[in-house]
Simulated assay, not measured.
Amino acid sequence: MTLTEFFKRFAIFDDREIEAFVPLFTVRHLKKGASFIREGTRCTEVAFIETGIFRSYYAKENGEEVTYCFRFPGDLLGAYSSFITGDPGLETLCALSDASLLVIQKKDLDRWVTENPKWMVFLKVVAEQQYLELENRIFQLLRETAAERYAYLLRHHPIYIQQIPLHYLASFLGITQRHLSRIRKEITF
């Protein structure tokens, strides 16, 4: 999906409006292992993922990293709470593969919001989607087994899941790598 297609799917902006603001996005390439944002820094930009896979994680006091989210091509990428509040972020967003991003600065978004009320509608829809995603994640963790959560990932992101290291998948599922290996042997599609 292209950035233009991404905006069109919301049916908020007309083609002329999309053509006007797409040039505000700049291309950024990240190598595997590079961070889009690191824990403790302020998020002042958001990106559209053209290519690549990202994981969002936080570090426990003992240094253990806990993966809580993956982002794939066609998704937006940013430390959402830091982006909204301006406070230092609690998470790191790291490329699991070489990636190509289209990045826009918060100051540019803020300007567009004051100039075009449709941006408020767009940002509201994005906030609602973030909320629904978080709620879905909570319900998955509370209601589903690790095998069901893994099967969900396989159904929705079959190609990308194969590219994510097992220890990150296990962390995301809240299980050990050994348990994940057993699950993978049992699940067939």
Rank of each mutant, 00 (worst) to 15 (best):
C94T: 13
S100E: 15
E133C: 05
K124V: 03
Q162P: 03
A151V: 02
T145I: 12
I175T: 09
G33M: 02
E61I: 11
I138R: 05
V22G: 15
Y58M: 05
S100T: 15
L142W: 10
L123D: 09
P158V: 09
V126W: 00
K118D: 08
V126F: 00
E186G: 12
R111N: 14
T176H: 05
H29W: 02
R28P: 00
A59M: 12
Q105F: 03
V22D: 13
A34Y: 03
I159A: 15
K106F: 12
F21R: 10
R137W: 08
V113R: 15
G174S: 09
E45G: 04
I161M: 02
I53S: 07
E133I: 02
T176S: 15
F21Q: 05
E61H: 15
T188V: 14
I164K: 00
D110R: 09
H29G: 01
T41F: 11
M1H: 12
T92K: 06
F70Y: 09
A34H: 11
V103A: 07
L123T: 13
C94W: 00
H157Y: 12
L93H: 13
E17G: 01
Y57K: 02
D87K: 14
P165Y: 00
Q105C: 09
Y168H: 12
T44Q: 14
L180Q: 06
T145A: 13
K118T: 03
C43Q: 14
Y152H: 15
F70V: 01
E128V: 06
S171A: 07
V46K: 11
